[in-house]
Structure formats: structure tokens, C-alpha cells
């Protein structure tokens, strides 16, 4: 039995098909990253699995319990951290935690004890008795996740946990999620950032326009589009034609030329001898080389190859949402 098993989930909102038959499995103790651009259906999947939305078709089980038949039982086993930091701003951090504990029907002393543990764990002890309204963006997210964990859920759902965080808070959040992974917290994480999925998820499920288009570990996905990439920077843009000629015999696919016409990227066969060969060929064609780099394909390359679309490679935080103390 897996912690989450969803089969053929379908959901339409009026004329829009948000989910067109999504299958998803989250094995116990693992972190699955649901990766896709805005509007791909990631949040809809999470909302169905957390009982917030009725699907039009398909089945979903959390911890072996049918989400559609017994939503109340499912709710007792999950923790949800949505895209908005869902904290009660008018209460203190500690009160927020106790409130959620009480809603999980913990006795007051147990809820208080658990709240104290989590405040310690999430580095919120100093702010514990301050009103959450004054918390920074990162603190709110930490409190939000702590609230999701109060009843030790079987599955933690993190819907875009770093959206809207500044770079420093994002890194701190990644460390935190890695620690949770280390403790064996089963997690379904959605993200539109390839870098984030690559770093945090054991398995990545790529979703686009309501369907799963690829699935596997980051390495498997990178292997799927085959081979490494060579990137050559040349000194003068006018030599770009010569450089293309020089690289053509080595390339296993089309050569991509940057708009500045000084960087060329091409897929190459994996194995040794490519770099010396490239440098020699460029030299013979009279091209001055500034830099040569061979790298494995990134998830950006994977996403581009799978969907034909370029994604947001840099998780740029929305600075307006970030509040520092």
C-alpha cells in the first residue's frame, strides 16, 4: 500500500479540463515532486487528494482510505500547507499550533506539548508568543508547515512551499524540507521550479495541461532526452558560422545559438574525447575560444524537450510578499 494512490483523476471547471486523467503514486517515506508550469493542474491534484475538491472521475486513496468515500478519515491523516500561508494572523504562533491540535481532537496538554516541540524544531521559540501578523514571510511558512505537522500526518502536502519567499528564506525552506525527508515524512510537493524538484524530490512527476507527461528520478528524466550538452563561448560574434561548422560533426542534434551569438550549445554523445576534439576543430577553423563546458542536461532541458515550452528557471521571489522583521 502506498501513502497516496490516485488513478485517472479528472476534473473540469466549466469548459476547462484541469485534470485529464492523472495517475500518481507516493510511496511511504518518500518525497514526490509534482512539477509543472502555472495552470498545469498541480494545485487541483492537491485539492482533490486533500478532500477539498470532488473530482469528476477517477479514484484516490490516502493511507489506504478512499478520499471520496471517507473524507473525514483522510483529513485526520494529512497535513496541508497551501500556496497561501494559512495562519490565523490575529493569534500568536503558539496559539495557532494549539488551535490546529485542538481541531485534531488532541487534549489541551498534549496540543500544548506538541506545539512547544514544533516551535523549537522550526526555530520559532523567540516569536512563539507574538501575533503572527508580524511574522516575516519565511516565519509564516515555517509556522504553516509546523501547523500541518502537529498531528504527525501520514502524508504532508506542500503546495508550492517556496513561492513568494526571498532567496534566503527559500534556501532555509529547502533545508527544512530536507530535514523532514530525513525523518521519513512522506511528502507530496508541488513546484514550478525545476531546481527545487531536482533538489528535494526522490521522484518527479512532470505534469502539463492536466496530464502526466513524464515520471522518474531526476537522473532518469535527464537520461530520457539523452546525452550531455556542450556549451562553447567564443570571443567574436562574427565567427559564429565558423564555430557552427566546426561543431557540426560532434553534435547529435541541432546547435542552439544564443541571441548574443557568442554562445553555442549542442547535444553530444556521452563519453570522453569530445572536448579536445571540439577545441581542435574550433582552432582549425580559426575560432578563438573563451570557454568550453560539458554538462548533463538540466531539468530545463527535459522540460523543454517534453513540452516544447521554456519554464521559469529562476525561482524569482515576489518581493512584495516578502516581509522582513
Amino acid at each position: 500500500m502506498h501513502a497516496v494512490e490516485a488513478t485517472a483523476l479528472k476534473k473540469s471547471f466549466g469548459p476547462t479540463d484541469a485534470l485529464r486523467g492523472v495517475d500518481l503514486v507516493v510511496p511511504e517515506g518518500s518525497v514526490v515532486g509534482l512539477l509543472g508550469p502555472n495552470g498545469a493542474g498541480k494545485t487541483t491534484v492537491v485539492r482533490v487528494l486533500t478532500t477539498l475538491l470532488q473530482p469528476d472521475g477517477g479514484t484516490a486513496f490516502v493511507d489506504g482510505i478512499d478520499v471520496l468515500a471517507e473524507p473525514a478519515k483522510v483529513r485526520a491523516r494529512i497535513g496541508l500547507t497551501g500556496q497561501y500561508a494559512a495562519v490565523e494572523e490575529r493569534l500568536t504562533g503558539r496559539e495557532n499550533l494549539v488551535l490546529i491540535g485542538r481541531h485534531f481532537h488532541m487534549p489541551v496538554p498534549e496540543a500544548r506539548r506538541r506545539a512547544a516541540e514544533l516551535l523549537e524544531r522550526f526555530d520559532l521559540v523567540d516569536a512563539a508568543d507574538r501575533i503572527a501578523k508580524g511574522y516575516s514571510g519565511g516565519m509564516r511558512r515555517r509556522l504553516d508547515i509546523a501547523m500541518s505537522l502537529i498531528a504527525r500526518p501520514s502524508v504532508l502536502f506542500l503546495d508550492e512551499p517556496t513561492t513568494g519567499l526571498d532567496p534566503r528564506s527559500r534556501l532555509a525552506m529547502w533545508d527544512l524540507i530536507e530535514e523532514l525527508e530525513h525523518d521519513g515524512t512522506t511528502t507530496l510537493l508541488t513546484t514550478q521550479y525545476l531546481e527545487e524538484a531536482d533538489r528535494l524530490a526522490d521522484t518527479i512527476v512532470v505534469i502539463d495541461a492536466g496530464v502526466v507527461i513524464a515520471e522518474g528520478t531526476a537522473d532518469e528524466l535527464k537520461d530520457r532526452i539523452g546525452g550531455d550538452r556542450i556549451r562553447v563561448s567564443i570571443a567574436r560574434a562574427e565567427n559564429v558560422e565558423k564555430a557552427t561548422t566546426a561543431l557540426s560533426p560532434l553534435a547529435t542534434g541541432p546547435i542552439d545559438i544564443s541571441p548574443s551569438r557568442v554562445t553555442l550549445t549542442a547535444p553530444i554523445r556521452t563519453g570522453g574525447g569530445v572536448v579536445p576534439g571540439a577545441i581542435r576543430a574550433l582552432d582549425e577553423n580559426g575560432v578563438d575560444v573563451v570557454d568550453v563546458e560539458v554538462r548533463r542536461p538540466t531539468l530545463d532541458d527535459v522540460f523543454l524537450a517534453l513540452t516544447g515550452k521554456v519554464t521559469d528557471t529562476d525561482p524569482t521571489p515576489n518581493l512584495q510578499e516578502v516581509r522582513e522583521q
Partner: peptide
């Protein structure tokens, strides 16, 4: 509006 509703609806109360 604050998104608290999703959290509340996902609780076993």
C-alpha cells in the same frame, strides 16, 4: 480571502 478556509476545510473537525 486569506486562504485560511482551505486549511480549516482540510481538518478532521
Amino acid at each position: 480571502q486569506k486562504g485560511l478556509i482551505d486549511r480549516l476545510r482540510s481538518l478532521p473537525m
